[in-house]
Nucleic acid binder design. Structure first.
Length: 275
DNA sequence: TAGGCCATCTGGTCCT
DNA sequence: AGGACCAGATGGCCTA
């Protein structure tokens, strides 16, 4: 026989009563009840080289750590804890939460779908995490904005574009391309010669706040890989830019894909400390 | 084995 | 009251 909702509520409440405010705190219960308020603050242990911090587990210590100066006891008294949800409502809430998260994941999939393939091409599919997707999309949007605003490094781009276009016209999932990009460069003298030119061009065109900084969180790419990627058969492509000088906004937008690749490469080069 | 990413559960808060 | 949103906790899976 099914339990009545009241019974379930009672059961849940009884279960929750075992959890005081400091439930699941076993380590710092002493500090929260003792006189070590200063110590609780210091319990925000630095971890992972300062990238993140460990917060105290007890609410009391956490309030102190977060800088609140209100009375914890007063807060407890003035705002009684609401009863836990019934089992039915808990289940429905869980289902809603799952649905909400599915929607979020669907949105992430859509976002990955609208990103140009080359933006993600250097990443394995498994590397397109949510945070990576957001960062790439953010960089992509900012770079598009730069192009529309005319802030893109066009001199640089017009030179580099020619070496990019064939790559852009290839199938995006060409395994050879990624392997060639990761291949150890340096065997080609022409590449080695052009590398300095490229770097100087990229450095000269990437000002301190030219928008390329927005790409700084792209996946790190070795300078040698960047140059190898950009200089693939550059001579044969140079003819293209001669025959197709940028005319208007449409052309610029049309070339945005390649311009962005240039911007990404420039960003990566500067990120590698070449500048 | 540590660390990253993810899905899920859960409680708190705010809004309608 | 119930739903939406958020953040913390937890465990599983994968990879270096």
């Amino acid at each position: 026989m099914a339990k009545s909702e009241e019974q379930v509520v009672e059961q849940d409440r009884a279960a929750s009563l075992g959890n005081s405010v400091d439930d699941n705190n076993n380590d710092d219960s002493n500090s929260s009840s003792g006189s070590s308020d200063d110590g609780s603050k210091s319990q925000a242990i630095e971890a992972s080289g300062g990238k993140y911090q460990l917060r105290p587990r007890s609410l009391h210590a956490r309030r102190l750590c977060d800088g609140g100066d209100w009375s914890f006891q007063d807060a407890i008294r003035s705002k009684p804890r609401p009863p836990p949800l019934s089992r039915y409502r808990r289940k429905t809430a869980n289902a809603r939460e799952r649905y909400r998260m599915r929607q979020i994941n669907t949105a992430f999939e859509s976002l990955r779908g609208v990103l140009p393939s080359w933006v993600c091409s250097r990443r394995a599919a498994s590397d397109m995490t949510k945070i990576a997707t957001l960062r790439l999309a953010s960089a992509y949007i900012r770079s598009l904005q730069d192009i529309l605003d005319g802030n893109a490094p066009q001199d640089t781009c017009s030179w580099v574009l020619s070496s990019i276009l064939q790559d852009a016209s290839r199938p995006h999932d060409d395994p050879e391309r990624s392997s060639s990009a990761s291949k150890a460069p340096g065997s080609d003298d022409a590449c080695a010669h052009s590398e300095a030119d490229l770097v100087s061009l990229l450095c000269g065109s990437s000002g301190a706040q030219d928008g390329l900084e927005s790409l700084s969180y792209l996946a790190p790419m070795a300078e040698s890989d960047t140059v190898t990627l950009l200089l693939l058969e550059s001579d044969s492509h140079r003819h293209w830019s001669d025959q197709h000088p940028p005319k208007g906004r449409a052309d610029r937008v049309w070339a945005s894909d390649s311009v962005l690749r240039c911007a990404c490469a420039a960003s990566v080069v500067s990120q590698e400390g070449v500048v």
